[in-house]
Nucleic acid binder design. Structure first.
Lengths: 202, 202
DNA sequence: ACGTTACTTGAACGACGTTCAGAAAAGAAC
DNA sequence: GTTCTTTTCTGAACGTCGTTCAAGTAACGT
């Protein structure tokens, strides 16, 4: 297959179009007809580039995850595990605030029941966990890696939950202006908890 | 309006039908035609009982919230604020595990952008927060109510986030068998953090 | 019994994601 | 350049969905 760029080109254009559509109208506002019009191709062309709209969303989410990873990496002015963990959580909150709709799409998107995420998609999420594991490992060098991973997931879940609730003002939302300081308080308490659990003192 | 029961009856039947539909097939599997068939009425009858499908979902969610409130209330074998808080979080995790789809519907449901939740719906959520505020208030009697409410929301968000991630195995999920103990660890650390912040020692 | 109001019905509508037969373009072979 | 083959592209058409509405039916007041 020589000219493989044409197919890839259209794919790239479609993903970019879907990305700006989601950024402007939210995941629910993403329509096949709008995306193809923005990408400058026919309606059916989607299904040459990609299996269906779900995959298109996952490609967009993949890009968002990549940008988020870069944003988290940019915080590594490391002055100790507590500060690193706090920095990661804060960067997560800031990224969510600055990329509301694309960030929301990461979690609002659901594939039909029964079918589960492709591996390439799942793996991209593991990178996030690895980044959290590192500082936790220095906080709790006594724990095995499996348990560190579990704690990293819990920490991520907790921070994500607070940010998630704040950003949609829905249910019981943390008021947005306080979000960063609440995240900081949350992470501070968790890090403190980890230290006390190991050393037995504050 | 004399015979107001007929209208209410249909409403009740529709909400019940929608509830079992969601419990069986998930929120995404809820279809107007299936609900009306199960409720034994015509397709258009939905719009006599309720404004649209979104309201029907909110009515179901309202019932779920009520049941969750009852489940949380059933844990009040109070032996101190730490135990109460832990009991609430654990009951939340257990309720989510035992009511997966209905619990998921509480958070997966989104109304179209711009329109926001009716007040009767929003208020039902505040009850949850009030329940969390009580034990926090005894842990930190030095804080004003506003700040207690903020902490309660953060605590709720954190616990919810961990449970949410675990239950859909999606992204980075806490393995389900460990969920309850991870929630316990999370709440333990947060409660410890609260105590240390006030007393200055462990 | 009749008129009026309220409810109920299901065919029809428009929007959506997806498909597919045919058109168009690109590549290979001469 | 011409022809044949293969790949890509197109947009009308299909099935499903939530929602509407004119027509039908039941309930109530007098």
């Amino acid at each position: 297959m020589p000219d493989t760029d044409r197919k890839t080109d259209l794919r790239t254009r479609l993903i970019a179009a879907a990305e700006t559509e989601i950024a402007e109208k939210g995941l629910m506002g993403l329509k096949a007809r709008d995306v193809t019009q923005r990408a400058g191709c026919a309606l059916g062309a989607i299904y040459n580039a990609v299996a269906d709209l779900d995959e298109l969303v996952m490609r967009v989410n993949s890009r968002t995850l990549e940008r988020m990873g870069a944003a988290l990496a940019a915080t590594s002015g490391a002055e100790g595990p507590e500060a690193v963990t706090l920095g990661l959580a804060d960067a997560y909150a800031v990224f969510a605030l600055e990329n509301r709709r694309l960030w929301s799409a990461l979690f609002e998107h659901r594939l039909p029941e029964g079918v589960d995420m492709p591996d390439w998609y799942r793996q991209e999420h593991e990178v996030l966990i690895a980044r959290i594991m590192a500082p936790l490992k220095s906080l709790r060098p006594d724990l095995p890696d499996d348990e560190i991973r579990l704690r990293a997931r819990t920490l991520f879940g907790a921070v994500h939950g607070v940010v998630h609730l704040a950003l949609q003002g829905r249910l019981v939302g943390v008021p947005e202006p306080f979000l960063r300081q609440e995240v900081a308080a949350l992470v501070g308490a968790l890090v403190l908890g980890a230290k006390v659990a190991r050393t037995g003192k504050v």
